[in-house]
């Protein structure tokens, strides 16, 4: 048993899992669908609400990223003894802080620097 698993590992060369023809095909078909829908939503103006369209684009984008992670990058909780997943989670946290933090700070900065605010302040002082 141990000799068998050893030979098996030698053949594959590392601890990461690999895809099969079927898994690549499933990933590809899902990606095509998940890419086509947001393009269709924007190019044909399917939804009246811009906010709803934007939410659909972001949501489908996140789903597609997960699909790519699983079917193309073969992410799972076991590869490399879980260190792959840990590094990924750490990165997601940093990315979320960097992007959400930048948008948050700069939005407030812009709001507080609005010209009409200066105008109102001038009026109130004037």
């Amino acid at each position: 048993m141990s000799a068998h698993s050893h030979a098996h590992d030698d053949h594959h060369g590392d601890g990461a899992s690999h895809g099969t023809f079927k898994s690549y095909l499933i990933g590809f078909i899902l990606s095509v669908i998940l890419t086509a829908i947001p393009f269709w939503l924007v190019m044909d103006g399917v939804l009246d609400s811009k906010v709803a369209t934007a939410l659909w684009i972001m949501g489908l984008g996140v789903v597609q990223i997960v699909v790519h992670m699983i079917y193309f990058l073969h992410m799972n909780t076991k590869s490399e003894g879980g260190w792959n997943m840990l590094a990924l989670i750490f990165t997601i946290v940093i990315v979320a802080i960097a992007i959400a933090g930048s948008l948050w700070v700069m939005y407030h900065l812009n709001t507080n620097m609005m010209p009409q605010m200066d105008h109102e302040m001038i009026k109130s002082f004037g």
């Binding site: 890419t35 947001p38 393009f39 811009k50 972001m58 984008g61 990058l73």
Partner: peptide, 20 residues
């Protein structure tokens, strides 16, 4: 495959949300 993942973000955020 990682570059493909980044491109998902690019076409979603830069192009589609941009044109929207």
């Amino acid at each position: 495959h990682f570059l493909d993942v980044v491109w998902i973000g690019v076409f979603s955020v830069v192009y589609l949300l941009g044109v929207l």
